[in-house]
Amino acid sequence: MAKICVLRMEGTNCEWETFLAFKRLKGDAEFVHIKQILKESEEERFLEDYACVIIPGGFSSGDYVRAGAIFASRLSKLKKEIIEFIEEDKLLGGICNGFQVLVELGVLPGIGEALSEEKKAVLTVNDSNLFECRPTLLRHVNGGKCIFTRRYTKDKIVIFPSAHAEGKLVFGGEDTLEKMIENDQIVFRYTDSKGDYAGYPWNPNGSTYNIAGICNERGNVFGLMPHPERVFYSYTHPDWTRNSMGVYGDGMPLFKSILDYIDG
């Protein structure tokens, strides 16, 4: 069975529920501290041994500077290995703080090259200028490029809760958004309860084009601000007592899609 790395450092705090999401589906996940892949620890681990690496949510290193920047800068010592990892079509995903790390690292938006030295996007401070924790509705708009969400039909609306202070995706370069749409790199967009694209609070941070999640051009690097791991089961949905559903919540198919791919 292919191995999954749940990568953490001080301040990562959504690793447990992320790890459990894989375990519940019999995935072979393990926690890895960043020291272990940076060869700063006796219990060394190697990126190449994993089929999928997930960077969970949290406040890595406190996020006192731009969110995710320190995690990304520590990871950038492994640039060569990361590029190889991506080019071998393995899966690299980031949720919330993990998404911020992937953008800071330059592997997202991931147009053309696997890792771009030039920054093409940034996840900046929410329009409200506050950390906010609220349920958000997302439309799955991906046409099939993104490996992480293949279990969701196109236009399916899901509830994933958001909890962040810096989730507003802004692009550099006038045609970046256009190119991404053309490449089928937009994965989730915030909507209101009628399924329309709307402003705050439905779009909790003021993100461009209501974007909540994107993937790279190959479809194997994926970042998302809201938290699918918090809605693995239906009973942690924000409205489960009024809108009954089955055992599983909206987040489960995301982890199932990953396992479909890495375990064949």
């Binding site: 705090n13 959504c14 447990w16 529920e17 459990l20 949510g57 506050l130 950390f131 906010e132 924790c133 609220r134 809760p161 909890a163 938290h227 791991e229 918090r230 693995f232 009973y235 942690t236 924000p238 007592t241």
Partner: peptide
Amino acid sequence: RRYDHEVGGRTVLK
């Protein structure tokens, strides 16, 4: 809303 009330994935009623 300024407090994360569901980190940990254990919060059933918010």
